[in-house]
Amino acid sequence: MLDVGGTGGVRDRTGRTGVGARPPRLTRRVRAVVAVGCWLVVWQVASVALDQPILLVGPWEVLVRLVELVPTGAFWATVGRTLADVVLGFTAAALVAVALAAAAAASRWVDALLAPLIATTRATPVVAFIILVLLWTDASHLATVVAFLMALPVLYTNVLEGIAHRDARLLEMTRVFAVPWPRRVAAVDVPGVLPYFVAGCRTGIGLAWKSGIAAEVIGLPVGTIGEQMYQAKLFLATADLFAWTVVVVVLAALTERVVLALLERARRRLAGEPAPPLVDPAGGAR
């Protein structure tokens, strides 16, 4: 459905201008590659100009270091350990957030009980949680606990908001027809909440990775990316630090893409549409 945008152009529901008017995927990709290329050039020029490899290495040195790291078994073991911890923490946060938000939506008392807890969790600095977890237990799954605590408030708030913004007219319809609740959940509740949940996941995954890595750098659990970054700092191996940072950025982006693709599959399944491939062969964001 098209409507006339405020700036005089024709705008569709997704805010795209023109009629059906997203630029071709190739154009978008070229633009993205050019933008990334520009920043890499700026980075390289800055490192050459500074000429202090301890303070700033260039992208070429980072690439060389990555090429050395990636083929090793230790690299994949480290990546696997941190990936498992962060994904476990985020997944647990997603499940608990949905359950708690459903309970809070069903009962004002539960909502009132949870509100200060969620607000406190959201406002507490991540380092406070890290220190507390280290006081209470060992560092072995510190990243899982911290990623859980950071992602939970965002996901909870978004799901609760999604529940509050379900289509009231459709809910009335299901009441009138006495539609059984499992059918109502599939037909009205999930489609209504899903966009809010997806938005929460986008933010929550980023938070889970940032806080999880911070926790590892402080708690130093053995065989993790955080430990590797700490070692790099200790031995002034700046190329290693940058290489592991690139690895974290790539892992966070991949995690987000996989989670969003899974949610899109779930949405299409509910809508009776054919499922897209889990990983887009063209590499475009879903």
Partner: peptide
């Protein structure tokens, strides 16, 4: 037990 056709259709758009 009740059934209704509302003034607005109130259909699930994705179904």
């Amino acid at each position: 037990t009740r059934a209704a056709a509302f003034q607005e259709d109130r259909l699930c758009e994705h179904l």
